[in-house]
């Protein structure tokens, strides 16, 4: 991309609204940005719109969903207005995605090598032999042991962790600027999780990737992310540097999420896991005011009037809440 100010964010999502069918709003006023070399953790409960945001950025939303408002800018170019043909050329090339389920993310009837070669040949002028050589290098880069031999294996011969490495190899094959990882470690067991996180961190550092890391695991966010964006029921409720937000959460939802994490000992003295009362409202049954109001411990009558506006405050943080917890330090 030519002629762009270097300080323009790599990815800038602003005022994004997505509708289902005729006018059921799935998310509204979602905005955040990802800088080059930065890792942003996107967190929230299931169904809050994390994955939908990722799919919207990639242009891979289901056909019955529609972006009704807002912009998604990559390198300053709006992807929402972009024709499908051009968007397709960016996928796998400028932006790439790693999915949640490594067991099903690879085509079972193609060798892993062929699946890496495919993306290289789609976006780069490479002969078959060149692409195959590069694919083996990529498999080595994601630390797949004996990569040359694994090249001609089918996915079902690989473990979940190995398959996720292949998915990552496919994602980084064309040196994208933006990598979206949608709960890439959720389906893996703990030791493998740590390895995959390490791998993503290393690749991100080495290639100065902008990484949008989607998870519901706050521990993982603290490990990997620079900034955190907390979503609830289709809107961003709190955002800021990860340590600041997690050490001093302001939104009652963030506070609740942190309190709901297991801590201390379950063996000594009947420790009970805290929870947030109630459930996430369905998209068509969201309250008119603050979406979190019905479950909120700080709720006041004015919360029901209108959704709280985004208020930025010190330390590069922002919040949507009329009655935040904690104190402005």
């Amino acid at each position: 991309m030519i002629g762009l100010a270097t300080d323009a964010p790599l990815l800038k999502v602003s005022d994004l609204a997505i509708e289902y069918g005729k006018g059921v709003s799935l998310m509204e006023q979602v905005g955040f940005s990802v800088q080059r070399g930065e890792t942003v953790g996107l967190v929230g409960e299931s169904g809050c719109g994390k994955s939908l945001t990722a799919l919207a950025v990639m242009g891979l939303m289901a056909q019955n969903l529609r972006i009704s408002q807002g912009e998604i800018e990559l390198d300053g170019v709006d992807l929402v207005q972009m024709p499908d043909v051009d968007l397709r050329k960016l996928r796998g090339e400028r932006m790439a995605m790693v999915f949640q389920e490594p067991m099903t993310a690879l085509n079972p009837v193609m060798t892993v090598g062929a699946q890496v070669v495919e993306v290289l040949r789609e976006h780069r002028r490479m002969t078959r032999a060149e692409a195959a050589r590069r694919a083996v290098e990529l498999l080595e880069l994601v630390r797949i042991p004996d990569a040359a031999a694994r090249f001609s294996d089918y996915p079902h011969r690989l473990s979940g962790g190995m398959r996720q490495r292949v998915v990552i190899a496919i994602a980084i094959a064309c040196n994208p600027a933006l990598l979206i990882a949608d709960e890439p470690t959720t389906a893996l067991d703990v030791t493998v999780q740590a390895q995959i996180l390490q791998l993503l961190k290393r690749l991100q550092r080495d290639a100065n990737l902008g990484l949008l890391f989607i998870t519901h695991d706050l521990g993982v966010v603290r490990q990997i992310a620079d900034r955190i964006v907390v979503m609830y029921a289709g809107s961003v409720v709190e955002e800021g540097p990860v340590d600041a937000v997690l050490d001093n959460p302001r939104h009652p939802y963030t506070t609740g999420l942190l309190a709901a994490r297991p801590h201390g000992s379950f063996i000594e003295g009947g420790h009970r896991l805290a929870d947030i009362k109630g459930t996430v409202p369905a998209p068509h049954a969201r309250p008119t005011g603050c979406p979190f109001e019905p479950r909120c411990v700080n709720a006041q009558p004015d919360c029901r009037q209108s959704p709280p506006p985004r208020t930025a405050f010190s330390g590069d943080r922002a919040l949507r809440c009329y009655h935040p917890s904690g104190s402005l330090n």
């Binding site: 990639m58 891979l60 397709r88 050329k89 960016l90 996928r91 796998g92 090339e93 790439a96 995605m97 999915f99 389920e101 099903t104 993310a105 690879l106 085509n107 079972p108 009837v109 193609m110 495919e118 993306v119 789609e122 976006h123 998915v167 496919i170 994602a171």
Partner: peptide, 26 residues
Amino acid sequence: TLDYVRTARAKGLSERRVIYVHALRN
């Protein structure tokens, strides 16, 4: 609807390739 078809789309493959190479063979 399967995940690997989404993976194929995320690679930026043409719709034709997604349908006839990835989906149809399965």
